[in-house]
Simulated scan of single mutants.
Amino acid sequence: MSADFLQGISDQPVGIAKSRAHKRQLQIHSRFEESRETFKPKRPISHAEREKERRDEALAKPISQESKGFELMAKMGFKPGMTLGKQREDEIRITEPITVDIKGNRKGLGHEVEEVQESNDRVEAVMQKMKEQAAKHEELIDDYSKRRKMDNNAKQLVKDIRACRKVREELDHRIKKNVPTVDWFWRSYKVVQEETEAPKGYYRSRETEKEEEYKYSNGLKAPVDPNYDASMPADELEDALSKINTYLRDGHFYCIWCGANYCSPEDMADHCPGSTRRAHHGDDDHE
């Protein structure tokens, strides 16, 4: 058969014959596949593989009873299946020969054990590093959560202080009070005044000299406004809120979180949940 003919046969699909010619083509194709598997060249066996096969075959066979060594052992009372030496009651001995471990490389004795130990050490080092990275990641997340909570806490404190100052000023104006009991209880505003004449003996600049001063909303002179913001320490914000909130509750019977002005201390005690934000909303306590 020519190669072209066989190639044409191999391209034919396998299936049910539709005609006598098709049936013959399928039979030829089947015989061709069987012959190709039969005469398929085998991979050559290497010298090391051939030695291993012979060694395994030899070790699988028991010691011949016709050998000189077996005859000497038989004279000393040895029988097939017995162990060598006197056996104690609590001792377990092997009845099969110890397997032979053939060394097929030039590495020193114990080198394989050392390689395994080094591999285990590397794996352990990688695992330890991963644990440290995970712990550091958790620490960063925890630190971020704490800082986020502190920032929100500071922002809420500033918001409450500003609300207290605003309400305090309105309530003091109702009772015709001109200045606050404590300077910063009211908000002060910066006022810029322009001077028309420069002091004698000084060179007058082209720009008009300006002098800054602070005043309350009623026009009276005031100190510099503290301008409370979230960048201030939390303990200072908490102390300021505690002072102004205490004055509002004791002096005006007003609760900033209730948003109500009570008639008396007894009325406040009966209807106000408490003197902290937590008591009203369950949020972080700003004492």
Rank of each mutant, 00 (worst) to 15 (best):
D90P: 00
A125F: 07
V179Q: 11
H29N: 13
R43L: 08
M73W: 10
D285K: 08
E194N: 09
H271I: 01
Y202I: 12
I256N: 02
H281S: 09
Y262R: 03
E170T: 07
E139K: 12
G282E: 02
D11T: 09
P180L: 08
G110V: 03
F78A: 09
G251S: 12
G201T: 05
D250N: 11
D283K: 12
M232R: 13
K190S: 05
S35F: 07
K52V: 08
F185A: 06
L237R: 00
N261W: 05
D121T: 10
R206D: 15
I45M: 11
D90W: 14
T38F: 10
F5P: 01
R204D: 10
E71T: 13
C164E: 00
M1C: 06
R20S: 09
I16D: 08
E207V: 07
I63V: 13
P265N: 06
S10P: 00
K159I: 03
C272Y: 04
E195Q: 14
E89L: 14
V179L: 14
T83V: 07
D151G: 06
A3G: 13
K243M: 04
V100L: 04
R162K: 15
T99A: 09
K103H: 13
M1K: 02
I98C: 10
K79V: 12
E71W: 01
M130K: 09
T276Q: 03
E34S: 11
E238P: 00
E33R: 14
H111P: 05
N261I: 05
C255T: 01
G259M: 02
Q133E: 15
A198K: 12
E112W: 01
K243C: 01
E34A: 15
E194H: 02
E89V: 14
D284L: 09
E124G: 08
E213W: 07
S205R: 15
P265F: 02
E170F: 04
K40R: 15
K68V: 10
R88L: 11
T99P: 05
W257P: 01
A3C: 10
K210S: 08
E33I: 15
Y262V: 01
T38C: 07
A154L: 05
R88A: 12
E124T: 14
S30N: 10
